[in-house]
């Protein structure tokens, strides 16, 4: 494996996350087909990305809740060029990368697929699904049907 995640004579691998104690619940969720977000047990604030404290009240008493996985595109970009350390995405370009505001009240970043990247628009309704990247599952979005 070279430093850019390219196997000798093989295909580039998707960058994998490190799974930490405070993010473990999320990664168990994606394997089970659930998009989990954090909820504060003290003030009920919901947040994304996983953090070791509540960004609203500072409590460290947090739990996981299942998001419905539905939301609207807040913004998007069409990726036409990969950077050196993410060569595995080369075969996917061009693709739409988007900020999605989930109906549950948090913003996430992910790819919008199963439509032409040019068809992605701000306000478009999307839903999450999950994809195994070899060692972890990630969420992606597709237009809501």
């Amino acid at each position: 494996m070279s430093r850019f995640g390219v196997k000798e004579g093989g295909e580039a691998r998707k960058p994998l996350p490190y799974i930490t104690n405070y993010s473990q619940g999320f990664w168990e969720g994606t394997k089970a087909g659930e998009l989990r977000i954090q909820k504060c047990n003290a003030c009920s604030h919901k947040q994304w990305i996983p953090k070791a404290a509540c960004e609203e009240c500072g409590s460290i008493d947090l739990s996981w809740i299942k998001s419905g996985g539905k939301g609207k595109v807040y913004s998007y970009s069409i990726i036409r060029h990969v950077v050196m350390n993410s060569m595995a995405f080369e075969k996917e370009i061009p693709y739409a990368l988007a900020l999605i505001d989930l109906d549950d009240g948090v913003r996430v970043v992910g790819q919008v697929v199963e439509c032409k990247p040019e068809d992605v628009k701000i306000g478009m309704e999307v839903e999450a699904f999950f994809e195994d990247i070899g060692g972890a599952s990630i969420f992606k979005f597709r237009p809501r049907r």
């Binding site: 990969v82 950077v83 993410s86 990368l97 900020l99």
Partner: peptide, 26 residues
């Protein structure tokens, strides 16, 4: 940063250019 490694790169974020692209489109 850990969030970039764990919650951006695997999800298709292509460095600061793509992050500023999202802000610019908005």
């Amino acid at each position: 940063t850990e969030h970039r490694r764990d919650f951006e790169k695997p999800f298709g974020v292509m460095g600061p250019t793509s992050l500023f692209a999202l802000v610019m489109r908005r």
